[in-house]
Design a binder for these strands. Structure first.
Length: 285
DNA sequence: CGTACACCCTGGCCGC
DNA sequence: TGCGGCCAGGGTGTAC
């Protein structure tokens, strides 16, 4: 469900209210997520104070005052939100619940909610975080200053024959893109999702890969600024919805006219490796 | 090695 | 109203 912009939005929302709070109560309602919630999850987190909230790719990293890090991933349907009193009864699919109490803010409840249970909540440690097996192989952060055409080219070189759509979904190539933003970035760059990655790596492909790197950054920045995209059930940490879904150029718009200025094409939907891709065959080559 | 597909799971929507 | 089929923002394991 959530891609980089949605996770980034949630990360900022959580940071604002959680940093400095003590996790007074931690309850695992059910632990059979994509990976099991570890047996020592409660004992390693309860009583600790939240020190930092960060994002790596689509992972949320909640760092506690003893160096323990909660690694969270929301899968397709996961949500992580904060509620203030009056606290309602738990809902179905509320799997893990944290409660804090602070003199300033009073009690807060952080809920991990995930109907499909494709997400996960596990533990790591600051000292060994970058070698954690879930994070070790992730590609570059597209919003980091050093991200650009050379870095992207280097990563695509490892998947030469792969169509661009599939290559960009691979988290080892670029970290944080998902099905929406890959289609959106390829449209902005004017590149066909079916084009093989290797065709951007030779001399004539240099302009194309520069456009692609810029398009990836730009679409992600715009989406973060809009608070992410709300399709079905995604909400920010405070329950507000994002608005970037109103600015999709191709995603879920098959049959509609291509929004590129001067293009007479129509947005098409195709399936690549089992997932929908939206693009305009007229202006994406 | 690289690619294609099934699968994990639940819920919403559409057509009958 | 009920039911079956299809679809969904992700990631991984398996079979070619």
């Amino acid at each position: 469900m959530p891609e980089l912009p949605e996770v980034e939005t949630i990360c900022r929302g959580l940071a604002r209210v959680l940093i400095g709070q003590r996790l007074d109560q931690v309850v695992v309602v059910r632990s059979d997520l994509r990976l099991p919630v570890p047996a020592d999850f409660v004992s390693k987190t309860v009583g600790r104070i939240v020190k930092k909230v960060e994002r790596r790719a689509k992972y949320l990293l909640i760092e506690l005052d003893d160096g323990t890090v909660i690694l969270g991933h929301l899968g397709m349907s996961g949500r992580l939100f904060v509620k203030a009193p009056p606290l309602p009864a738990l809902m179905p699919h509320d799997h893990v619940v944290f409660e804090t109490s602070s003199p300033q803010n009073g009690p807060l409840r952080l809920v991990y909610h995930d109907p499909r249970r494709f997400g996960l909540l596990v533990l790591g440690h600051t000292g060994t975080l970058f070698t954690h097996e879930l994070l070790r192989e992730l590609g570059p952060e597209p919003l980091a200053p050093q991200f650009g055409a050379p870095q992207l080219a280097g990563r695509l070189a490892a998947r030469p024959k792969t169509p661009l759509k599939a290559a960009l979904l691979d988290q080892r190539v670029v970290a944080g893109l998902g099905n929406i933003y890959v289609s959106e970035a390829l449209h902005r760059a004017g590149l066909s999702p079916e084009r093989a990655a290797v065709t951007l790596l030779d001399k004539p492909g240099r302009a194309a890969i520069a456009r692609l790197a810029r398009a990836i950054r730009q679409v992600l920045q715009d989406a973060v600024a809009a608070g992410g995209s709300t399709l079905r059930d995604y909400v920010q940490a405070n329950g507000e919805v994002g608005s970037f879904q109103n600015r999709f150029r191709v995603y879920d718009r098959d049959g509609q006219p291509c929004p590129r200025r001067g293009c007479r094409g129509t947005v098409e939907r195709i399936v690549q490796s089992g997932r929908a891709t939206y693009f305009c065959a007229m202006c994406q080559r």
